[in-house]
Design a protein around this nucleic acid. Structure first.
Length: 407
DNA sequence: TTCGCTACCCGTTAATAAGA
DNA sequence: TCTTATTAACGGGTAGCGAA
């Protein structure tokens, strides 16, 4: 080997070493950048979320100021503008793809998944004895556990989406329960859960309305979708470290044996082709006594918590309990010519819901207000009766409708 | 005091759909 | 095809009650 070739060899080796070092550096840099990117992505998500909360606060404050100035005024233009702008920008909640507006929290959730039911595992479930009228229908409203059933709704037999193997989703079915507020970390509030008709071939829509946010109904394609929003928001404002998991059927009361039995007893249940008939038997009187006493205690506890931090003159739970039938009627009256068991005392406008599945739903308060008869103590909910859900196809439409609504 | 029963809350996980 | 998000079934822990 000559001296020159040896030099060349050394040089090559050195170059190789340099390249290897460079490659190592680049790989490390790539890793670092990747880490930074993920971190930044998370931060962006968090910032978007915080921005959303702040926008909420701002618009709420603005609305409060606005309503204080004049009770007959229309909705604050700012609220509508921000809503439209935000929707058009596609602002979403982290982890949940929830699009928000000032009037509604819409949950463009996926359709319910097929149930993974174990047909062999059904066993007889025990139900509480309930009061019935002369015809044998349950006397409503009925308190079952922490839930108050105000309407059992009507079974839809001609559309499969309104039932599955385990649950029936009667249109108009409404329950109420007290749950931690989504806006006030020290309060509880009354939550009304209603199953509404999506119209046409669309399946059921699950609506959740908090008494302290009556103008912000949450509507989703599944019970879980709607309640997850409530659980998440309630936990977030309390800074609770929680998985935010929520079982929709649980919270809607559909899993409760007594409620499931009442629904199963409704006319038309036998015609449902996928529904697996379940066996129920009335629980022993002593067991029922204990169960009901426990439930009563739990309800009292929740109500006490709810009232504990109320300002004077704002007894939210008792008054809202009296007011809630209007909320339920507002959502339900469109689908039902007459209430099956429970007749809310107020007449309301019928919501209009299009037949297109998996669309966003936006509730818009038409103006001016059309209510003349209203309890004085419920001025917090003065727009409730006039809310009308409108199905939105796209972000643009959502933005447009928000703008149109502003006048 | 213990036991049996039930409800409620919460977390885990299988199933599924949608997007990358 | 893999990853991520979502739904809903299911189970565990806890609590309250009445009866033994």
């Amino acid at each position: 080997m000559t001296t020159s070739s040896h030099k060349q060899h050394l040089s090559k080796h050195k170059n190789q070493q340099n390249l290897k070092t460079l490659l190592r550096e680049k790989i490390q840099l790539n890793h670092a950048l990747k880490k930074e990117f993920i971190k930044a992505k998370k931060e962006v998500k968090m910032l978007l979320f915080e921005r959303d909360l702040l926008l909420d606060d701002i618009s709420r404050l603005h609305q409060d100021t606005f309503t204080d100035e004049s009770d007959s005024e229309v909705q604050a233009p700012l609220a509508v503008t921000t809503s439209a702008a935000r929707v058009s920008q596609g602002v979403t909640w982290p982890h949940s793809a929830i699009t928000k507006s000032e009037e509604t929290v819409t949950v463009p959730s996926a359709p319910p998944k097929r149930s993974r039911i174990n047909r062999n595992k059904f066993k007889t479930r025990r139900v509480q004895p309930i009061q019935r009228d002369q015809r044998g229908s349950p006397i409503l409203p009925l308190q079952i556990g922490v839930l108050t059933v105000t309407n059992l709704g009507k079974i839809v037999t001609d559309r499969d989406a309104f039932h599955n193997e385990r649950y029936i989703f009667p249109v108009g079915y409404t329950v109420q329960r007290v749950y931690p507020s989504m806006v006030n970390p020290t309060n509880n509030t009354l939550i009304t859960s209603t199953i509404i008709d999506g119209g046409g071939e669309a399946g059921p829509k699950f609506q959740v309305v908090a008494a302290d946010q009556p103008d912000k109904p949450i509507v989703a394609n599944s019970a879980t979708g709607a309640w997850t929003v409530v659980v998440r928001k309630a936990n977030e404002i309390r800074q609770r470290d929680h998985s935010n998991s929520a079982s929709g059927p649980d919270y809607f009361g559909l899993r409760h044996p007594t409620i499931a039995k009442m629904i199963q007893d409704l006319p038309g249940a036998g015609e449902l082709k996928d529904y697996i008939w379940q066996d129920f038997e009335e629980m022993e009187p002593r067991a029922a006594k204990g169960v009901m006493a426990t439930a009563e205690k739990k309800r009292d506890h929740l109500e006490q918590l709810a009232c504990q931090h109320q300002s004077p003159g704002r007894k939210i739970i008792r008054e809202d309990l009296a007011m809630q039938p209007r909320l339920e009627q507002q959502a339900y009256s469109a689908q039902q010519p007459s209430m099956q068991h429970y007749q809310p005392p107020y007449s309301t406008l019928h919501p209009t819901i299009s037949a297109v599945p998996y669309r966003l739903v936006q509730y818009i308060s038409p103006l001016p207000l059309q209510i003349s008869q209203q309890p004085a103590s419920h001025h917090h909910h003065r727009n409730v009766n006039t809310m009308q859900p409108v199905m939105i196809d796209s972000d643009e439409e959502m933005a447009q409708s928000g703008t149109n609504n502003s006048g």
